Amino acid sequence: MNQQPISIKDVPKEERPRERLLTLGPRHLSNQDLLAILLGSGTKSESVMQLANRVLMHFDGLKLLTNAAIEELTAIKGIGEVKGVTLLAAIELGKRMNQYKPRDRYVIRSPEDGAEYVMEEMRQLTQEHFVILFLDTKNQITHQETIFIGTLNASVVHPREIFSQAVRRSAASIVAVHNHPSGVPTPSQEDISVTRRIAEAGKVIGIELLDHIIIGDRKFVSLKEKGYI
């Protein structure tokens, strides 16, 4: 007779994540508990809690799980296609909820405002993304556009491309943003050079570069505050 997989029902009732979520609320559950609920069952040789713990250890907690591919998930013993798809769907839903912006236009009053607007969207990207926020006369964001993906340098980030979009969208000013996948937002000499080129072009056209913000992992640097604009 084939042995059945160990499910959450095999865990003592007072330790079951689902029951504890209903009693205490989701905020009181650990990452392992929440992952176990999504997985639903363990394997023939381990409980769902043990499987959840093994998945977290494989991905160094949640740090790498956010960018996991289906092939990497299903390569883990005990994670089939169904469980892998469930995890990917939950991860993507979490990302979209983090990136959700209110319908009212977002106003940029400070570097902190600009950083907060894009932080969750950009801090975990594995490649550099150069993004422009287009603002109206009230400093409200009217549009966001990724101009370039890849290593930032002056030869590939052309002010004419940025300002042609700004003119087309009737922007009064812009904020440039890019991320450092390392998580460290310290500006490079190339970052400074690109910033100055864009700022100079903006003065000629009459569309001000308000700031260039570099996004790290939950931290940022404003090149305006550093005196480079």
Results as ranks from 00 to 15, higher is better:
residue 124 Q to Y: 12
residue 99 Q to G: 07
residue 191 D to K: 02
residue 171 A to I: 11
residue 179 N to F: 10
residue 213 I to N: 10
residue 179 N to W: 09
residue 139 N to D: 13
residue 34 L to A: 05
residue 159 P to C: 08
residue 29 L to I: 09
residue 91 I to S: 04
residue 199 A to L: 09
residue 188 S to F: 11
residue 217 D to V: 01
residue 40 G to K: 00
residue 90 A to P: 05
residue 172 A to V: 02
residue 49 M to Y: 04
residue 32 Q to M: 03
residue 129 H to P: 00
residue 217 D to L: 04
residue 184 V to I: 13
residue 66 T to P: 03
residue 142 T to M: 14
residue 109 R to M: 12
residue 108 I to T: 10
residue 49 M to Q: 03
residue 176 A to R: 09
residue 160 R to S: 13
residue 51 L to S: 08
residue 115 A to D: 05
residue 192 I to T: 00
residue 23 T to D: 08
residue 181 P to L: 05
residue 219 K to N: 15
residue 176 A to E: 14
residue 121 E to D: 11
residue 208 E to Y: 06
residue 219 K to F: 09
residue 223 L to R: 12
residue 96 R to D: 14
residue 19 E to F: 15
residue 91 I to G: 02
residue 200 E to W: 05
residue 11 V to L: 04
residue 145 E to W: 09
residue 224 K to Q: 13
residue 123 R to F: 06
residue 113 D to W: 14
residue 175 V to T: 03
residue 118 V to Q: 11
residue 197 R to M: 15
residue 11 V to C: 03
residue 218 R to A: 14
residue 84 G to I: 06
residue 80 G to H: 00
residue 87 L to W: 02
residue 112 E to F: 14
residue 14 E to T: 09
residue 122 M to A: 10
residue 197 R to I: 15
residue 182 S to M: 01
residue 21 L to I: 10
residue 5 P to F: 00
residue 110 S to Y: 14
residue 62 L to D: 15
residue 8 I to N: 01
residue 1 M to G: 15
residue 34 L to M: 10
residue 195 T to Y: 05
residue 6 I to Q: 07
residue 96 R to W: 11
residue 180 H to K: 10
residue 211 D to T: 06
residue 37 I to H: 04
residue 22 L to P: 02
residue 165 Q to F: 13
residue 97 M to F: 12
residue 128 E to F: 00
residue 55 V to Q: 02
residue 39 L to F: 01
residue 209 L to A: 08
residue 30 S to E: 14
residue 26 P to N: 02
residue 71 E to H: 07
residue 172 A to R: 05
residue 35 L to K: 01
residue 79 I to V: 02
residue 58 H to Y: 07
residue 103 R to D: 11
residue 58 H to R: 07
residue 110 S to R: 14
residue 70 I to Q: 04
residue 53 N to S: 09
residue 199 A to V: 07
residue 131 V to Q: 12
residue 142 T to K: 08
residue 62 L to R: 01
residue 31 N to E: 15
residue 74 T to I: 06
residue 63 K to E: 15
residue 51 L to R: 01
residue 52 A to C: 03
residue 224 K to G: 07
residue 158 H to T: 09
residue 127 Q to P: 02
residue 47 S to L: 06
residue 25 G to F: 07
residue 92 E to T: 03
